[in-house]
Simulated scan of single mutants.
Amino acid sequence: MSANSRLTIAAHTLAWIGLYQRQGHEVATSEQIAGSANTNPVVIRRLLGELREAGLVESRRGAGAGWSLTRDLASITLLDVYDAIEPGPLFALHRANPDDGCVVGHGIQPALHDVYAGIECTVRTELSKTTLEDVLQAVLAVPR
């Protein structure tokens, strides 16, 4: 199973837009962001659509089309981004109920439920401690 990079790409996208706006630009295009993230602009557009639904970015059509932040990076946490793009739980139980006649099938879901809930709580707490301003400042501090 591969790791999910959607949160990383979304944080990259928002930090990039924030920096670009600080440099005096009003909007950023998905092509520009995709170049920085080294991914397809369609991937960026899909994420930006979800971020727009969450109220973190807005788009402009027509001449001068592009994306801009709706809030300052200091007021957007990684939890805000996570909630915008990953609305479901981090871990899920079986899609179909396991065999209740099997000792493991009978007890696996109750055994894992509290573990998963604790992990979810810890992840949410940690993500809420970091703003995108923190992320951008850490990015800018990395030696080139």
Rank of each mutant, 00 (worst) to 15 (best):
Asp80Ile: 00
Pro41Asp: 04
Gln32Ile: 04
Glu120Ala: 14
His12Pro: 00
Thr70Cys: 11
Arg61Lys: 12
Arg71Ala: 07
Ile33Gln: 03
Glu58Gln: 13
Glu26Ser: 11
Trp67Arg: 05
Met1Tyr: 10
Ser30Met: 08
Thr8Ser: 11
Arg45Ser: 13
Val135Leu: 03
Ala117Trp: 01
Thr29Cys: 02
Tyr116His: 10
Gly88Lys: 06
His94Leu: 08
Val81Phe: 07
Gly118Thr: 00
Thr125Trp: 15
Lys129Asn: 12
Gly118Met: 03
Ser75His: 15
Leu132Val: 01
Leu47Trp: 11
Gly49Ile: 07
Leu56Arg: 00
Cys102Ala: 15
Ser5Cys: 08
Ser75Ile: 02
Leu112Trp: 05
Ile76Lys: 08
Ile33Leu: 07
Tyr116Pro: 00
Gln21Gly: 11
Thr70Pro: 03
Thr131Glu: 08
His106Phe: 15
Leu79Pro: 01
Val142Leu: 14
Leu19Thr: 07
Pro98Gln: 11
Pro143Ile: 02
His113Glu: 11
Ala111Gln: 08
Pro110Met: 10
Ala10Thr: 02
Asn38Lys: 12
Ile119Arg: 01
Thr77Cys: 10
Arg60Gly: 08
Glu26Cys: 08
Thr122Ile: 05
Thr13Gly: 13
Arg71Val: 01
Thr77Ile: 02
Val139Ile: 11
Gly18Val: 02
Tyr20His: 14
Ala138Pro: 00
Lys129Gly: 13
Thr122Ala: 12
Leu48His: 01
Arg45Pro: 00
Leu78Ala: 08
Ala117Gly: 05
Val81His: 05
Val135Gln: 02
Gly101Met: 04
Cys102Asn: 15
Leu19Asn: 03
Pro143Trp: 05
Arg52Phe: 00
Asp99Cys: 03
Pro143Gln: 10
Ser2Ile: 15
Leu112Asn: 01
Leu48Ile: 11
Leu19Met: 08
Val57Asp: 11
Ala74Asp: 14
Val103Gly: 06
Ser36Glu: 12
Trp67His: 07
Gln32Lys: 09
Glu26Arg: 14
Gly35Tyr: 02
Ser68Met: 09
Thr39His: 03
Asn38Val: 13
Ser5Arg: 13
Thr29Ile: 03
Cys102Asp: 15
Ile108Tyr: 00
Thr29Asp: 04
Asp134Val: 07
Ala3Cys: 00
Thr130Pro: 04
Ile9Ala: 04
Gln23Tyr: 09
Thr39Gly: 04
Asp99Met: 01
Pro110Cys: 11
Glu50Gly: 02
Pro98Thr: 14
Asp72Tyr: 07
Thr70Asp: 04
Gly35Ile: 00
Glu133Ser: 07
Gln21Ala: 15
Cys121Thr: 14
Leu93Ala: 10
Ala74Trp: 01
Val123His: 10
Pro87Ile: 04
Arg22Gln: 12
Leu19Ala: 12
Ala92Arg: 14
Gly107Asn: 15
Val103Thr: 09
Arg52Met: 02
